[in-house]
Design a protein around this nucleic acid. Structure first.
Lengths: 133, 133
DNA sequence: ATACAACTTAAAGTTAACTTTAACTCAAGT
DNA sequence: ACTTGAGTTAAAGTTAACTTTAAGTTGTAT
C-alpha cells in the first residue's frame, strides 16, 4: 500500500507542508520520490507519523522524537538511553498535567463566580462574594 | 507593603526581565517608579501576578489574560464576556489534558516495553514483544 | 497543444513569550 | 571621590514548530 502526501495530510490532519518539514528535519525517513518527483509513502511512514503524534501529545520536542527513532534502530544497544529519555519525559508530562489541572481548577472557580455575577446582574440582586463559590 | 522587582522575581520564580515585559505589554499596571527610577510594587501586583500564573497554567495566552483584566474592571458589564472566555478556555484546557493523558499512556507503554528489553539484554534472554507489555 | 490540478523546491516569514545586550542611573558603602 | 550593586531603557535576538511564498514540474483531461 502506498500513499500520496495528500493522503497522509488527510489521514493525520496535518498540512502537507508539515509532512515535508518532518522529512526535512529527519523525522520521516526513506521517502521515495517517484520518477524523482512526487513523494510516495508506505505503511512504515504511517507507523512513524502515528508515533510522532503520540510523542507530540506527551510534549516531547521534535528533536527528542528524532533521537528516539535513532536509538530505536538499535534498541538492544540503546534500551537504557531510551528508558532514561522516556522516564524523564514521563516526569515532565506529569508535571504539565498537574499544572494544567490546577489551571483548570482556577478557571472553573472563575466560571462559578461569574455565573453568580451574571445572575445577580440579571435579577438585580446583590453581587456575590468569593466566599459564595 | 511594597516590593522591589527582585522581591517579586524571587517570590514568583520569574526573571526580572519577564516582570518588566509583563508591564510593557500591559499585564501589570500602575507600577510606580520611585523617584522616576526603580519600580515599586504593592500587594495589588502580587495578586495580579498570582492570577497571571494561574491563567498561564490553564494555557490562556497573555493577550487573553490581559483582556480578562480589562473586562474585570467592569465585571457587572462584562460578566457575560468573561464567562464566555472562561468557558471557551475550559474546553481547550480539558482537551489539552486529554491529549496529555493519551501521550502519557503512550510514554508509559514504552517505559514498560523498554524495561523488558533492558532486562532481556542484561539476562541474555529473548527479546520481548509488544504483546508482553 | 494547452490548460489545469497537484505536486515540487529553497528560502524567507511567522508566532508567542520571552531573553539578551549595551549603554546608562542611582544610592550606599569605603 | 570612587566603586559596587541593583536597577533602568530601547531594541534586537532567540526558540520551536511550523507556514508562506515564488517559481518551477508533471500527469491527465480537453
Amino acid at each position: 500500500m502506498t500513499y500520496s502526501i495528500t493522503d497522509l495530510s488527510k489521514k493525520f490532519d496535518l498540512p502537507a507542508s508539515t509532512i515535508r518539514y518532518y522529512e526535512k528535519i529527519g523525522l520521516l525517513e526513506n521517502v521515495e520520490h517517484a520518477n524523482s518527483y512526487r513523494r510516495v509513502y508506505n505503511d512504515s511512514h504511517i507507523d512513524r507519523l502515528n508515533a510522532i503524534e503520540c510523542f507530540k501529545k506527551a510534549l516531547l520536542p521534535l528533536d527528542e522524537i528524532k533521537r528516539f527513532f535513532t536509538y530505536e534502530k538499535n534498541m538492544k544497544a540503546n534500551s537504557e538511553k531510551i528508558l532514561e529519555m522516556m522516564k524523564k519525559q514521563e516526569v515532565k508530562t506529569i508535571e504539565s498535567m498537574e499544572a494544567l489541572q490546577s489551571g483548570l481548577d482556577h478557571l472553573q472557580k472563575k466560571i462559578r463566580f461569574y455565573t453568580l455575577v451574571n445572575e445577580a446582574v440579571k435579577n438585580n440582586t446583590p453581587m456575590p462574594s468569593w466566599n459564595d463559590v
